[in-house]
Computed example of a mutant assay.
Amino acid sequence: MAETDLELLARLRAAAESIDPPATDLADRMIAAIAVTDISREYALLTLISNAETPVRAGAAGGEAETSTLQFSDGSASILLHVAHAERGRRRVDGWVDAGAVEVQLTQNDRTWTTAPDNQGRFAFDEIPPGLSRVRLIIGSDRKDLLTPHFEV
Rank of each mutant, 00 (worst) to 15 (best):
R57N: 09
A58H: 14
A58W: 14
A58N: 03
A60V: 14
A60E: 11
A60K: 12
A61G: 04
G62V: 00
G62A: 00
G63I: 02
E64T: 15
E64G: 13
A65T: 15
A65R: 13
E66A: 14
E66M: 07
T67P: 03
T67Q: 07
T67C: 07
S68G: 08
S68Y: 01
T69A: 09
T69D: 06
T69E: 07
L70S: 00
L70I: 02
Q71T: 07
Q71L: 07
F72M: 05
F72Y: 00
F72H: 04
S73K: 00
S73T: 13
D74R: 06
D74I: 10
G75N: 11
G75T: 08
G75H: 05
G75P: 03
G75L: 01
S76V: 11
A77W: 05
A77V: 04
A77P: 05
A77Q: 08
A77F: 01
S78T: 06
S78H: 04
I79C: 10
L80E: 09
L80W: 00
L80S: 03
L81V: 00
H82N: 10
H82E: 11
V83K: 02
A84E: 10
A84H: 04
H85F: 11
A86G: 12
A86R: 08
E87V: 14
R88A: 14
R88F: 15
R88V: 08
R88K: 11
R88G: 14
G89F: 06
R91G: 07
R91Y: 13
R92W: 12
R92I: 11
R92G: 04
R92A: 13
V93Q: 03
V93N: 08
V93H: 03
D94Q: 10
D94E: 15
D94N: 09
G95D: 01
G95K: 09
W96C: 07
W96N: 12
W96D: 01
W96T: 13
W96L: 14
V97K: 02
V97P: 03
V97H: 06
D98A: 03
A99V: 12
A99G: 05
G100Q: 09
G100W: 11
G100A: 15
G100I: 12
A101I: 09
A101N: 06
A101T: 05
V102A: 09
V102G: 09
V102R: 15
V102C: 01
E103C: 11
V104S: 06
V104H: 11
Q105N: 12
L106N: 04
T107M: 01
T107D: 03
Q108N: 13
Q108R: 02
Q108W: 06
D110Y: 08
D110T: 12
R111E: 00
R111S: 04
R111V: 02
T112Y: 10
T112C: 10
T112M: 11
W113D: 07
W113E: 06
T115H: 05
T115I: 01
A116E: 08
A116S: 14
A116T: 13
D118T: 10
D118N: 08
D118A: 07
N119G: 13
N119Y: 10
N119V: 13
Q120L: 08
Q120G: 05
Q120C: 01
G121S: 00
G121H: 02
R122E: 09
R122C: 03
R122T: 15
F123E: 00
F123Q: 02
A124H: 15
A124V: 15
A124C: 10
F125R: 07
F125G: 02
